[in-house]
């Protein structure tokens, strides 16, 4: 059996607040294998954002272990985490998070700058990824010139450019209308079929229905973990 993309053992995170130690996440166990499409759900304050930050190597746990593609992340320092994020994880955010002053091509190519790839290769690969999300014609536009749905496609192209095994999407359709959301989810499903592991946070059942597996959080714990029921409409 191959190594899991994500393996989390007793993972927890506590914050120090004025009222004392607040456990945002309590001893979570989870395993996500290569090629899975997992939706993480739960009300706000359930700990799912904290969990996603830990999965994204943006934060370090207070206890437990996190193995990302076999590496124990808890032992890495900030710069090693940055390199790991760069090579292993593609981020897609709710607010798209493109850099407003850069062309779409430069936005998509930015992770390659930090990976130390030369200019010509950066450009070629950025164009290729833009083509993959259907926006090859907009390479030299600025993000403000295109729609929200298109911006999210560019963000997905950026997430894909370093060919990461894992994509983490945090409410990727939260700022989009339902039709555009549907298009973005179709895009994710297509990427998943190409073998990319996707973990997506959402609070909408419609969106979660695109995943194969749904994990629900409440009060810092996983309360349910089950395959998505067959869609009635599909």
């Amino acid at each position: 059996m191959s190594e899991a993309v994500i393996r989390v053992v007793g993972l927890g995170k506590s914050y120090t607040t004025a009222a004392g130690l607040f456990p945002a996440l309590k001893a979570v166990d989870l395993r996500v294998d290569a090629g899975e499409f997992v939706a993480i759900m739960g009300p706000s304050g359930s700990g799912k954002s904290t969990f996603m930050n830990l999965l994204g190597c943006l934060d370090t746990p207070t206890h437990g272990d996190y193995f990302l593609v076999g590496r124990n992340v808890a032992q890495l320092d900030k710069d090693q985490l940055a390199v790991l994020r760069n090579r292993t994880i593609g981020f897609v955010f709710q607010g798209f998070n493109l850099l407003p002053r850069m062309t779409l091509e430069d936005n998509v190519a930015l992770p390659l700058v930090y990976a130390g790839v030369d200019r010509d290769s950066r450009r070629a690969r950025a164009r290729q990824e833009l083509g993959r999300v259907g926006l090859a014609d907009y390479a030299s536009s600025l993000p403000s010139r295109i729609s929200g749905g298109q911006q999210q496609r560019v963000a997905i192209a950026r997430a894909l450019i370093n060919s990461p095994p894992l994509i983490l999407a945090d409410e990727p359709t939260g700022n989009l209308d339902s039709q555009t959301s549907e298009e973005i989810m179709t895009l994710f499903a297509g990427l998943n079929r190409q073998g990319i592991t996707i973990v997506l946070v959402t609070h909408e059942n419609d969106i979660a229905a695109h995943a194969q597996r749904q994990v629900r959080f409440r009060d810092g714990r996983i309360v349910s973990d089950q395959p998505t029921p067959a869609r009635e409409s599909a």
Partner: peptide, 16 residues
Amino acid sequence: TREIGIRMAIGARQRD
């Protein structure tokens, strides 16, 4: 600040 956060998320090290 937000731009810095984005850059960090996609792999910028502190020295970058």
